Amino acid sequence: MSQPTFTFSDFIGGFWRIDAWNMSPQQRLALIEHYLELGVTCMDHADIYGIYQCETLFGEALTLKPSLRQQMQLISKCGIKPAFDGYDGRYVNHYDTSKAHIIKSVENSLTELTTDHLDVLLIHRPDPLMNADEIAAAFEQLHTQGKVSHFGVSNFTTSQFDLLQSRLNAPLITNQVEISPLTMQSLHDGVLDQCQQHRITPMAWSCLGGGEIFSANTPQALRIRNTLRDIAQQVGAQDISQVIYAWVRMHPSRPAPIIGSGNLERITSAVNSANIQLDRQQWFSIWQAAMGHSVP
């Protein structure tokens, strides 16, 4: 398989909560500019975020300074159809990776984001009814039309990744997966191994465990929190979140963490974690605290 030609920024701006930040369009623009000033050029979206509102809110901000589009890479996802109070006649949450839905979703995302193309499109979740040939046909049409430059997946197993890749002429460029000390499945199930094998940059979502690392009182969370605090003191980290980002990025596949915050100081702190270097014993101390046992 040929190697991907797309380069991700070391960190990625996540906008799945932008609808809850109560920002004016000008404040949203300032947030985007802050990311860009820090070298965070990849912006992660999905059609369903904010009940189909988050892309709209981002697009409204971008219209205030359209020239910023040339400085960023827009990423979006599709394939999930939640049953939002009967929205669009839906009565059950389901997946739709049909060619028609993929193309319609991209058309909507382009309109809402006020752009003529997506840099990357991901299939949001693996669909048990996924027809790889149909997805490939959708990808080919969107690429030929200049509406999507690159393609990837999200939350796919290695076999699902290989199935879809087998139908494509161009390489999938990422697998966006959950990686945190609370969720380490991708470290052990072959997903990150596959990314490293093909020199694919994985995108890491929910690195901070949805906040549970900071607040949960489970034995696991307490072990992790105590270990992170000790290591933060050892390496001079501003807070334990910086240690978590450094831990995620230390994996040889070099995951790109998605920062899901609208707080400028927290975003800056996350990006500055790139200056923190853990040693192997510190990395495995966090692994041990998460697993509850030593390595075999």
Rank of each mutant, 00 (worst) to 15 (best):
A237L: 02
T157G: 08
T144W: 07
A204N: 02
H124I: 12
I32Y: 06
T97Q: 08
D127T: 14
L172Q: 05
Q176F: 00
W247Q: 02
V148M: 08
S186R: 14
I103T: 11
M130S: 12
L192I: 03
D239T: 09
S180F: 04
L192C: 04
C207P: 07
I267V: 05
S269I: 00
S9P: 04
A170Q: 13
C42F: 03
H34A: 08
T144Q: 12
H94N: 12
P202A: 01
P252M: 01
R266P: 05
Q71L: 08
V191E: 06
V248M: 03
T183H: 12
S206P: 00
M43Q: 14
I102S: 03
V243D: 04
Y95W: 14
M1Q: 04
S253K: 05
N275Q: 13
L31H: 02
S98M: 09
L110E: 10
P219G: 12
F58Q: 11
W21E: 09
L31Y: 01
Y245F: 15
A270L: 02
P296S: 12
N93H: 14
N108V: 14
V153F: 07
Q185Y: 04
Y49V: 00
L110H: 09
S109V: 04
Q3F: 02
Q288L: 03
W283M: 08
S215C: 04
T157C: 06
M184T: 15
S206Y: 10
L118K: 07
M184W: 05
L38V: 06
Q141P: 00
S285L: 09
Q73A: 07
N169R: 15
I123L: 15
H293F: 11
I244S: 05
T227Q: 15
L57P: 09
F6W: 02
N226Q: 14
S109E: 07
I213H: 00
K104P: 01
T201F: 01
S294W: 13
Q26M: 13
M43W: 14
S186H: 09
D189E: 07
Q282R: 05
P296I: 07
H45M: 06
M130E: 13
V295W: 10
P171L: 04
L172K: 13
V40Q: 08
T7Q: 07
V243F: 05
E178H: 10
A246I: 05
H34S: 08
E37A: 13
K65D: 12
N108P: 00
T114M: 06
G190W: 05
N131M: 01
H124C: 11
E107M: 06
